[in-house]
Design a protein around this nucleic acid. Structure first.
Lengths: 166, 166
DNA sequence: TCTGCGATGTTACATTATAACGTTTGGCCA
DNA sequence: TGGCCAAACGTTATAATGTAACATCGCAGA
């Protein structure tokens, strides 16, 4: 695994960074993961993943569909949804339930849960990777005898950049 | 405010309890809150709230619409969605984004955020009211300069009852 | 009683997602 | 290499969820 040039777990989408690098690394990582797991990262799937990463904000399924259309692919919704399903299953993207939109996972190799800060001004979303938080939640659930399968945390608010501007 | 006969913040939907009491208390509390805040808890709104509380699992908007239809009201979607909007704004119900469904809030007077344990076997959902968790998340967000407006935490898993059965 | 605003009715439509079935493709093994 | 199977994709249709826009109603306060 190559050493990432942007440390995605420390930098945030709210701070300045080379997003081209993010995209490239995310795609490279995805390719590696699929290769080593015998998964087929097909053209459609790769392109969906790329479009998601290229966007600065979470992307809806029908936005992807529209891009496909612009590119001459005339696909129907199931094509996109199937690609998204594959990417989700393999932890390459997350779905933000509160937005009905998708975002690239910044740490697919960790199989962690998705937690997100979502700025309601600029619509950007930052994934959090807090093992602690996960443990706290596990503990809280455990107290009630509840076994956690997976969780989604979506925090809406204002990011530092938008705050600075206001 | 009357002393609740079920302590809703300690008991859970996963354990045995008198749900008729839950419903009655929830409706009474809602009436009080609306009264003291000059809000109109109309017939439609009250019935929507009641239907939500009567259900053992989170309820979709179109389920409510169907009940309305059974009851002779022939309402259109906006009627239900508007009632739901009102109830959400006044913290009487929460929307579970991961289910596109609604659930009664167990502590409307506290104006807290909603966190939920959702059992994927029986579909029941239990609201959590952990100030600590909220603070942790606030802190985590704060570290990135992010100001939290509101948050939704939805934990999917298996409840103690369903575990016992399996 | 009048009046104004908030609540509801009504129609139409937008957005998001999936079911069902046929066709293609890519890899595996004889 | 050729055939076969399963997985991926295409296609059509439709389900499920949610909202815009405008008309009407009704209640509370002047």
């Amino acid at each position: 695994m190559p050493i990432p040039k942007n440390d995605m777990t420390d930098s945030t989408v709210f701070t300045k960074h080379d997003h081209q690098l993010c995209i490239q690394e995310a795609l490279d990582t995805a390719k590696e993961i699929c290769k080593s797991n015998g998964l087929r990262l097909t053209d459609t799937r790769l392109r969906v993943l790329e479009l998601i990463w290229q966007s600065h904000t979470p992307v809806g399924a029908y936005e992807i569909l529209a891009k496909f259309s612009e590119e001459g692919r005339n696909s129907a919704p199931p094509t996109v949804y199937r690609a998204l399903e594959f990417l989700q299953e393999n932890n390459l993207v997350h779905r933000l339930a509160s937005l009905n939109a998708f975002i690239g996972c910044i740490a697919p190799e960790h199989g962690h849960q998705g937690s997100f800060l979502i700025c309601k001004k600029c619509s950007k979303a930052q994934e959090l990777t807090s093992r602690e938080l996960e443990k706290d939640i596990q503990a809280l659930a455990g107290k009630q005898g509840f076994t956690v399968d997976n969780m989604t945390l979506e925090v809406s608010g204002v990011c530092p950049r938008c705050k600075a501007e206001a």
